[in-house]
Nucleic acid binder design. Structure first.
Length: 886
RNA sequence: GGGCAGUUAGCUCAGCGGUAGAGCACCGCCUUCACACGGCGGGGGCCACAGGUUCAAAUCCUGUACUGCCCACCA
């Protein structure tokens, strides 16, 4: 690309589009198998097909892409599998809402038409999501894209279900479950969110059957009274001991129920007497089982009272509550009511209040699976940050059987059939033709579908082709790392470990990196249902994908949530622009592409600035690689930011400008060094910001022998160049920079025009410093804008002059006439104050014998030297200040 | 009720034993031939509070106070 085309400021849209197309059409991220050498793989946490990607996805994608691109640079064969999740309940809800808006419903459409409708929806939104993943620059392999309900994955689901059933790890039965009356389905325990809710605690009298009085119970849910089958008290409770075993009459219904004793009951709460409703409360259900109580379903799946509720039958449960309370009041059985706050379960998809309800469901016996999953971490699968280990263990240790059936239509229909003729239950991977027992062909498949997370749990191996023995599976399982948010640690991560270990006999991933959640301005979790989402596409349109990616990377500190504000993205766009302009400068100063550039070993380049920047580059290479390996993404971003902006642009480019004009050997060296540093810096940046680096890379000229690929995605990580690692250059550079800064500070603080050349005297501290300064006289003169420079430890200072103490030298600027002595004196006072403060701090430290004796000797020595330095500086400045006093 | 984070410059956050840093914002000066999405310089913090360990504590320990999150069956 011709140089003239590099515009003054970076315009991402066109460039991103071009590279995206090139990468996609070239299939550059599709690894060919069998893989040569080491492999690296990631399966994408599949976004749901229901909606748009939010900023959390953008974050998740950025980190994975960074890891994948880096792994490619290290020469590994990399596979990043993309895909989407069918998200049963969520998707069904969305489509149902749309149907409602159209004035129809899924029931009107019927199951088949409804599911067809969702498939259409999926095609539409799947494309949307693909577009967004592409917009982020994610280097996924689209040729291996999967969907949780595609044929292959559906088969994997059936295989797993059938096998677990035959192994006795899946069973069907009547249990208390979490019922969402709105989604009309059972939910797993972890799909219920508990939130405190203000309510009323009613104290209700249950008369004793023998007419000898009452037992008063406390409840927040009077509508469940028709479902009561006992009242329970603590056996130790003296108030009730004499009544245990007696019969009570259920108010309004006059049904006799026993008064039972159980240690579960808390004597302190309410009246110490608990009404037991086994069919509508998890704890009561346990009590019911233990004491063989009746299970009375008082509320149906639509939140209406059942026939068991007598005259309340057919009423909505909230209406029934009012009627029951009224009835109790009329009978004088409502003793009192109090305000109270209690935890109420809500559906994690629609936020509706959960009704515990007994129903027939399918369950996975997770204990045996959980034990294996527990044992595998952190030995076989490591979790980062480690703080999540405890949470992970705690969950597995307290795990209950997993309810996997859902009473919805969108999802994997359970592969179980009941024989209409003999009632035999058949569970098979493929639909059986006839009942093996009675040979009837009249078989009815289960209506229920599986929990979405059931198929998600198989994702790492199902996407690679299981149950077929594919080349992908062989090459890429276990995957290298799973990158995800902690919100789905239980839903997904733990279950993948269970299934992976059970069916593949190996962990699904070697490492898990748990990243923070991107929250909104108030620190609230972003979610589609809350509507507080930020659209990454909008950010990309405004600032470019690279700016967004860099921002997210810079924020990715372990174990900390991200509160993202748009102006941060804007800030990092400036950084992208800075890189762009550094590249423009580079191109302006390099020969055109077709001119062969002289090759010379970089180790042989001895210019002060070149040696220094090459040395720093070596350090950065090492540090950047380590940061990626250890998932310290924020360190990576910060390190590169500082290097590029503060060192490469602010100092190095300024320093070499003269060389670039000089021609000859100086220019040749500068060109060679600049090109090398630019190119390798691009490689270091590329995993974070692929587009701008690709564009610049392709525009850079090459040396005669250069055989590097045109496309930066194909280029390896910059090799270490030990010969360029020269720590002494950093020390030397500090002396130079410090002198320049001193002169600039004087200029700025004394309001000397930037264009006015300064007459400067620099007094080096010692001979080595003098040599360094002397060797870089031209550079110092230029960067500090000096008119003249006298380098001499003993040079006399003119009467009217300003001084600044630098590292390794003292800088004196002549102020013949034009300068306000008041200003200089004030400046000197300020400087003296600063020095005195530091000196006092150090001196008091050194006065402490404990310190001088116990602290490391080099530290003490360093402090002593510093004090000496300060005293010398103070004396010098004082002398000058005194002159101004006269 | 249990567990886990966080509390550092106006804002967002790094630092996690040697006496405080970044970005943005702010204040000067500058249309210097890569970049005003810029350059140069500057101001700003008893590092939540109270104890303790240590020669030395944002940094380690123990409490306290807020804030947020996760888990848990308190009717």
């Amino acid at each position: 690309m011709p140089q003239e085309d590099l515009s003054k400021s970076y315009a991402p849209a066109e460039i991103e589009g071009r590279w995206r197309a090139r990468w996609e059409e070239g299939g550059v991220f599709s690894p060919s198998l069998p893989a040569a050498g080491e492999t690296y793989s990631i399966v994408i946490p599949p976004p749901t097909v229901t909606g748009n990607l939010h900023i959390g996805h953008a974050f998740n994608l950025t980190l994975q892409d960074l890891l994948c691109r880096h792994a490619r640079q290290l020469g590994k064969t990399v596979l990043w599998v993309p895909g989407e999740d069918h998200a049963g309940i969520a998707t069904q809800n969305v489509v149902e809402r749309r149907l409602a808006a159209e004035g129809t419903s899924r029931h009107e459409l019927g199951r088949e038409a409804f599911v067809r409708r969702i498939w259409q929806w999926k095609e539409e939104y799947g494309e949307n999501i693909r577009r967004q993943i592409k917009a982020m620059g994610a280097s996924v392999d689209w040729s291996r894209e999967r969907f949780t309900m595609d044929d292959g994955l559906s088969r994997a689901v059936r295989r797993v279900f059938a096998r677990l059933y035959k192994e006795g790890l899946i069973y069907k039965g009547d249990y208390i479950t979490n019922w969402c009356p709105r989604c009309h389905t059972a939910l797993a325990d972890d799909e219920v969110e508990h939130a405190p809710k203000r309510g009323t605690l009613w104290f209700i009298r249950y008369p004793l059957a023998d007419g000898s009085g009452f037992v008063t119970i406390a409840t927040t849910r009077p509508e469940t009274i028709p479902g009561d089958s006992a009242v329970a008290v603590n056996p130790e409770d003296v108030r009730y001991q004499s009544l245990i075993g007696k019969t009570l009459l259920l108010p309004l219904l006059n049904r006799p129920i026993p008064l039972i004793a159980d240690a579960y009951v808390d004597r302190e709460f309410g009246t110490g007497a608990l009404k037991v409703t086994p069919a509508h409360d998890h704890n009561d259900w346990k009590l019911g089982r233990k004491h063989h109580l009746e299970f009375i379903r008082a509320i149906d799946e639509d939140d209406r009272m059942t026939a068991a509720a007598g005259s309340f039958a057919g009423k909505n449960k909230m209406e029934a509550r009012e009627l029951i309370l009224q009835g109790l009041t009329d009978l004088g059985l409502l003793q009192e009511s109090r305000e109270c706050e209690h935890n109420v379960g809500h559906c994690y998809r629609c936020k509706e209040v959960i009704e515990p309800r007994i129903s027939t469901q399918w369950f996975v016996s997770v204990r045996p699976l959980a034990e294996k999953a527990r044992a595998a971490v952190p030995g076989r699968a490591a979790i980062y940050p480690e703080s999540w280990l405890k949470t992970y263990y705690n969950w597995l240790d307290n795990i209950r059987d997993w309810c996997i059936s859902r009473q919805i239509w969108w999802g994997h229909r359970i592969p179980a059939w009941t024989c209409a003729a003999c009632g035999e239950l058949l569970v098979e991977e493929e639909a059986p033709a006839a009942c093996p027992r009675c040979h009837s062909t009249d078989l009815n498949q289960e209506e229920d579908v599986l929990d979405t997370w059931f198929s998600s749990a198989l994702w790492p191996f199902s996407t690679l082709g299981w149950p077929e023995k594919t080349a992908e599976l062989k090459a890429f399982y276990p995957t290298s790392v799973l990158v995800t948010g902690f919100d789905i640690l239980f839903f997904w991560v733990a279950r993948m470990l269970m299934m992976g270990l059970h069916f593949m006999n190996d962990v699904p991933f070697r490492e898990v990196y748990i990243h923070a959640l991107v929250r909104d301005a108030d620190g609230k979790k972003m979610s589609k249902s809350t509507g507080n989402v930020i659209d990454p596409l909008e950010m990309i349109a405004k600032y470019g994908a690279d700016a967004l990616r860099f921002t997210l990377t810079a924020f990715a500190a372990m174990g900390r949530d991200i509160k993202l504000a748009e102006n941060r993205i804007e800030g990092y766009r400036h950084f992208i622009n800075k890189i762009w302009n550094a590249a423009r400068f580079t191109l302006l100063n390099l020969p055109a592409q077709e001119d062969p550039m002289p090759d010379m070993p970089l180790e042989s380049i001895h210019g002060e600035a070149h040696a220094w920047i090459l040395h720093r580059l070596e350090e950065i290479k090492t540090r950047a690689a380590a940061a990626v390996k250890e998932y310290r993404f924020n360190d990576l971003a910060q390190e590169l930011y500082k290097f590029v902006w503060s060192e490469f642009c602010d100092w190095y480019l300024e320093m070499i400008k003269a060389d670039m004009q000089a021609g000859g050997a100086a220019q040749a060296q500068a060109r060679r060094a600049l090109l090398a540093v630019m190119r390798e810096t691009l490689l270091l940046l590329h995993p974070i910001i692929p587009f701008v680096t690709a564009e610049i890379w392709s525009a850079l000229p090459r040396t005669a022998q250069d055989r590097r690929p045109d496309d930066i995605t194909q280029a390896p990580y910059p090799a270490a160049r030990p010969g360029c690692l020269r720590p002494e250059t950093a020390t030397r550079m500090e002396v130079i920079q410090s002198a320049i800064v001193a002169a600039r500070t004087i200029r700025a603080e004394l309001n000397i025009a930037p264009s006015a050349p300064l007459c400067a005297i620099i007094r080096p501290q010692d001979a080595p410093k003098a040599a360094i300064l002397e060797a870089n006289r031209e550079m110092i003169t230029r960067l500090a804008r000096l008119g003249s420079l006298h380098l001499n430890p003993d040079a006399p200072a003119p009467k009217l002059s300003a001084r600044q103490v630098a590292a390794g030298s003292e800088v004196i600027i002549c102020l013949e006439g034009a300068i306000d002595p008041e200003a200089e004196r004030a400046r000197l006072d300020k400087e003296l104050n600063k020095l005195a403060k530091e000196r006092l701090m150090l001196q008091s430290k050194l006065a402490n014998e404990n310190y001088t004796q116990k602290a490391p000797a080099d530290l003490v020595e360093r402090d002593r030297l510093r004090v000496e330095e300060i005293i010398t500086a103070e004396n010098k400045l004082k002398t000058v200040r005194d002159k101004f006093n006269t």
